[in-house]
Design a binder for these strands. Sequence first.
DNA 1: ATCCTAAATGAAATATTGTTGCATTTATAT
DNA 2: ATATAAATGCAACAATATTTCATTTAGGAT
Lengths: 148, 148
Amino acid sequence: MTSIKNNYQFEDMLDKHQLKKTAPRLRVLSMMYSKNTATSQPDLENVMHDIDRVTLYRILNVFEEKGIIHKVFDLNGTANYAVCHSDCEANHHHDEHVHFNCTVCKNVYCLNELSLPDITLPAGFKPESFTLYASGLCPKCNKKNLVK
Amino acid sequence: MTSIKNNYQFEDMLDKHQLKKTAPRLRVLSMMYSKNTATSQPDLENVMHDIDRVTLYRILNVFEEKGIIHKVFDLNGTANYAVCHSDCEANHHHDEHVHFNCTVCKNVYCLNELSLPDITLPAGFKPESFTLYASGLCPKCNKKNLVK
DNA sequence: ATCCTAAATGAAATATTGTTGCATTTATAT
DNA sequence: ATATAAATGCAACAATATTTCATTTAGGAT
């Protein structure tokens, strides 16, 4: 179980979005906030065997709709979800940051601290959002690589 | 946009990669070169009903391995493939350009002419490749939008 | 505290998407 | 013209995502 303090915060988050405070949702929230990498439905399924697959899909979907998490695809095209910054609103994400996908451990990192430089597109294109995907070695796997 | 190629050129491309010049491959090549947007397996299946699903998957895979095309995921996480620049090599793509995904027509454009600005990642991350993903309105849909 | 209702969950069925194995066909080098 | 390695087509399979519906649960009303 997570600390009581954290759990209250998760309950507040659900309250704020008019979502019922159910056990599966709280567990998913606490798991996602405990990691610094994105989480996929398979990730959740591996850890929470007692929660139905479908429930996990639905929780991820509703969290995304409400702007609690945002979706990012990894190198294999599977959907990963990462917790959003405070400035995310429902269906209007401010996820203009850098996503890093490690080619070894496959983890997806959201590098929120980095902002994107201005990009000018060819005439006619009207962009609404940008995301930069980088792939390579994450700090952990890079370290292991050097040691070998 | 894309340069128009004739059948002889497609045959040459297959030759160069030690691939047999088969009818399905030539048809896929000609279709992909006739568009300025990326192509998915469903796209191909919709047009070429007489070619087997599996064959299309395999053609896309082998073309990607050989560096003839490169893979890019659209907003829905489905794999799209676009013809590569001349400087693509097998399994070592130079696809560090901008991909634009239209939210209306769902088409994926490869904006090869744009190059990416330098990005510095947090300490420890060792990037190998970058892709910038933009979404919004493509020129066509933007135009329609203004007219309404 | 108990009851009521809408929301959420769980389980089964279905749909969609991608892969594997194998028999047949085809391109191409000899 | 033939041999053979590669490519195709088909069927079965596997993995992934969605739909439907009966049951359970959270949270407000009484």
